[in-house]
């Protein structure tokens, strides 16, 4: 693995400039938040899944995302279905309970809205990996800097993600060390035992991270981080024809979404 989450492939998405992909992602997020009709949201979801396919990304990861998300999705859906103030009653399940704002009926609008909300979240969760998996972190940082995000902030954001695997390795090592001290099974035992077991992992991990950060500070300063000099960049980014096409597409879809919304289309 050359980069966190990055999957090295050759696809149109991999070749797009990171800035284009950031804007494209934002456009999709805005559009998906504009519509409340699940049909529209489903259409966008299929677009995103199509992009997964075209970017040669493993589709079974989408399945994993769905799996982790099922529980939350059910809760969100049920809450909306019960409490959304709709007009078309579908099913009466109890007498009205004004104290919690429940009319006693499940409404068509509530079901639709709940469905749309769940689908929106699915879109958001499938769009983000699309960006991360097709863009090396170094390109992403450069894109943020070009968007006038302060260099320090962009650097910290992308570096934090690249340090993640080594923190994970260390956590694994610490867990092994504590296993050897008879911490049998982190799920078992009474509350107090479990508390100590988790402290035995978290304490060394946090203290270690603190020590590392001091040395990191020295190492970064020693490499002239924060020098009062106009910084230069090794990596360059260039827009190509495809980037302009996608940028234009993003703008058009945003405008289109707003027009549809004004015409009350795509809204429950």
């Amino acid at each position: 693995m050359a980069d966190v989450g990055y999957i090295n492939q050759d696809s149109f998405l991999h070749r797009l400039d990171a800035r284009t992909k950031l804007i494209l992602m934002l456009a999709i997020l805005v559009v998906v938040l504009v519509f409340t009709d699940p049909i529209y949201v489903i259409a966008i979801l299929f677009l995103v899944l199509g992009a997964w396919k075209l970017a040669k990304l493993p589709l079974n990861m989408v399945g994993d995302i769905f799996k982790y998300f099922t529980g939350i999705a059910v809760i969100i859906f049920v809450l909306q279905a019960f409490f959304y103030p709709g007009e078309t009653n579908l099913l009466q399940i109890s007498n009205p309970i004004p104290a919690i704002g429940f009319s006693g009926y499940i409404t068509l609008q509530g079901v639709m809205y709940g469905l749309a909300l769940v689908l929106r979240l699915v879109v958001i969760m499938t769009v983000a990996p699309l960006l991360v998996m097709t863009t090396p972190m170094s390109d992403l940082m450069l894109a943020l800097v070009k968007f006038k995000v302060p260099y320090r902030f962009a650097f910290i954001l992308t570096t934090a993600m690249s340090l993640f695997p080594s923190i994970q390795n260390r956590a694994e090592l610490i867990q092994q060390a504590q296993l050897c001290r008879g911490v049998g099974d982190f799920e078992s035992g009474n509350f107090f035992v479990r508390l100590r077991a988790s402290a035995s992992i978290l304490t060394p991990l946090i203290l270690g991270a603190f020590r590392d950060s001091q040395i990191l500070d020295v190492a970064m300063s020693s490499r002239a981080f924060g020098a009062p000099i106009q910084r230069t960049f090794l990596l360059e980014s260039h827009f190509r024809q495809a980037d302009y096409i996608f940028l234009a597409g993003s703008c058009l879809s945003l405008v289109g979404a707003v027009i549809l919304r004004i015409m009350h289309l795509g809204v429950v």
Partner: peptide
């Protein structure tokens, strides 16, 4: 602790 960039080149 002194390597913190995403790849060797950076």
């Amino acid at each position: 602790n002194q390597l913190f960039n995403v790849n060797v080149q950076c």
